[in-house]
Simulated scan of single mutants.
Amino acid sequence: MKSVKVKAPYWEIAANLYFPENFDENQKYPAIISGHPIGSCKEQTSGNVYGEALAKAGFVVIAFDASFQGESGGEPSSTENPTLRVEDFRLVTDYLVTQNFVDENRIGVLGICGGGGYALNVAMTEKRIKAVGTIDAVNFGRLSREAFSGWNPLEKLELIAQQRTAEARGEAKRVDDLLPNSVSEAQAAGLTDIDVLEATDYYKSERGQKPNGVAKTLFSQSAVSIGWDAFHLAEVLLTQPLMLITGDKVGGFGSYRDSLEIYGRARSEKKELLVVEGWSHYDLYDKPEPVQKALAKLIPFYQENL
């Protein structure tokens, strides 16, 4: 693995490159861009699980931190801006096509959770991407309008407007934790949703915790996501081969629902949906059995389409 910097207009995007065994820089390899979940970082599931596994299967994989997050540049930090997140994928593609060891005609993308929604969205207008795989794809716009706004997006937009004005006048920034500090704290607060509890277990314990996987968001910068939709124009523009993977234990973040929706809406002639029975959204992040089931589909999918 090699850490690299990807040039962006005003800052750099931090990324990790994973190489196949017996890598030869004089050869050309198919490449996969791996996009992390909301609140995550490149050292978590997008890199240390799927990035490593796909590299062992013969692909060059680049797992990157979103702008404003992890080790990437951009201020204010902890901003989750879908428009810029989609642009990050284009910039990483720009980086790959300048590398002599990458076959520019064999670039694919893998997105996990919210990263899956972004991967699907960018593929609609970024045709250098030839194949799209997702794990637990979530349309972050839908989630922002629904559960993340308490099903009252108009009220949340008013609160965001007030907070943005306050920060423009010099008041302290409001940075929200997306999750409780522990599973026991979540349960004590009466939270029962499987996605909330399992996300807390992943991000707030030794299981998946990483210094840059902070699971926080800057409240004043979250208006854009409420007006955004990852699946807009999928019936017209999303044409690449798709491999959509989700668990059948349904939680509040909606990856099961969103995966089924985009499977039906995408214009792609070649598309497949795998529902991994008996496993949940966060099981697919790092649990060996469901991850292997996912990889058993992803690896031949990329081999065939890249």
Rank of each mutant, 00 (worst) to 15 (best):
S184V: 13
R145E: 15
F148S: 13
V122P: 01
V291Y: 07
L274R: 03
L143P: 00
K5P: 05
D94Q: 12
E206F: 10
D94K: 02
G58F: 07
G247W: 04
P180R: 12
Q69R: 13
T200S: 01
K270V: 14
Y263I: 15
S46I: 07
R145M: 02
F219K: 00
K42I: 10
D283P: 03
D248S: 03
K28G: 03
T239C: 08
V122T: 12
L237K: 15
N212W: 05
K210G: 08
L17C: 13
I107K: 07
P153A: 11
R106A: 11
A53D: 00
K297D: 10
N100D: 15
G35D: 04
T217C: 02
F64Y: 15
K287H: 09
V4T: 01
V92Q: 01
S72Y: 07
L54H: 00
S205N: 12
V132N: 11
L91Y: 12
K127L: 04
V224H: 09
F140Y: 15
G35C: 03
T217R: 15
L284T: 09
V97Q: 01
Q240F: 07
K28P: 04
F59D: 02
D24E: 09
S225W: 13
K5T: 13
Y29W: 11
L233E: 15
K28H: 08
E12H: 08
F68W: 06
L306V: 13
L298S: 03
S268V: 10
S280T: 06
S34V: 14
S149R: 15
E80W: 11
A199F: 05
S3Y: 10
A137R: 05
G114R: 13
Q221Y: 06
P290F: 12
P300V: 06
L154Y: 10
R267A: 15
L273S: 05
E104G: 00
K56M: 03
T246C: 14
E206S: 05
K156Y: 08
K127W: 11
T217V: 08
R267L: 11
R128V: 06
P211T: 13
K293D: 06
G252C: 14
L154S: 14
I38C: 00
Y302V: 10
Y50N: 09
V86P: 09
E12P: 06
A294Q: 06
A172W: 10
I38E: 02
K293G: 09
L84N: 09
N121C: 06
Q162V: 00
E304G: 02
T45P: 00
Y285N: 00
L154N: 14
D94I: 03
R207T: 06
E167S: 11
V175L: 12
D195K: 08
K249W: 00
E52P: 11
L273Y: 02
D176H: 10
L179E: 13
N26H: 09
A294L: 07
G150S: 04
A296Q: 06
Y95G: 11
E43T: 03
Q27D: 03
G70P: 09
W151Y: 11
I226P: 07
N212L: 02
R128H: 14
S182Q: 07
D176E: 14
I33G: 02
L154K: 14
